[in-house]
Amino acid sequence: MPISSAKLNTNLLLPQALAASLEALINKVLALESANTSFEQLANKTLTLVLAELGFGLSFTVLERVTADKQTLMVTSLTEHADCTITTSLSTLRELKAEQQLTDLIKQDRLAVSGDIKVAQQFAHIAQHLAIDWQSELAHHIGDIPTHKLVQLAKNISAKVGFAATQIQADASEYIVHEQRLVITKSQIELFNHQVSEVNQQVTDLDVRVNRLFQSFKRPVN
């Protein structure tokens, strides 16, 4: 008998494990925030996020005051009480980069908001304006020169990985389109579409001419 996802979630405590990990991660990141973002307006406010892929909700509550262990935010899977609830999918959430996109996504029915939308906007604003100097933070732990070297190395690796990805994509495209002929190119599709349109136009013209011819036959001879 298949185990239901709810029972699996309960037994493995997935919502709680995810909430605990996110809470630790977010508070760690917020503690590094150099612009000292103010959460005063959001004190005691809760934003609940229900993602289609997860099957459960996660609530983000801003604490009234930062605790001694630098906790600003609490993450739970308590979903009964929220100032604002967003129901969406993970892929849509990734697109939520610009503030105006929130409204666009609601219009497209890809995101549903209930409650005070200002709370969602304030959370989104904070997330988008985090100013964390990662290099400086890393330098505190391993020193300036190793940090510089590490960042250079990361940039080089990133550039090489990007180049390799482009190359692989081009090679794969070449193999699939030209060597194996499994897929046709965009220009071939456009040419085909153009030809179909031309045939369509010709058929329409022919239809008009045939109709005219019929009409001329039906006309009584004087």
Partner: peptide
């Protein structure tokens, strides 16, 4: 996690 589950089940507000 067990304690978090308890809090989640409490419906506290």
């Amino acid at each position: 996690l067990w304690k978090r589950f308890t809090i989640d089940a409490s419906g506290v507000r």
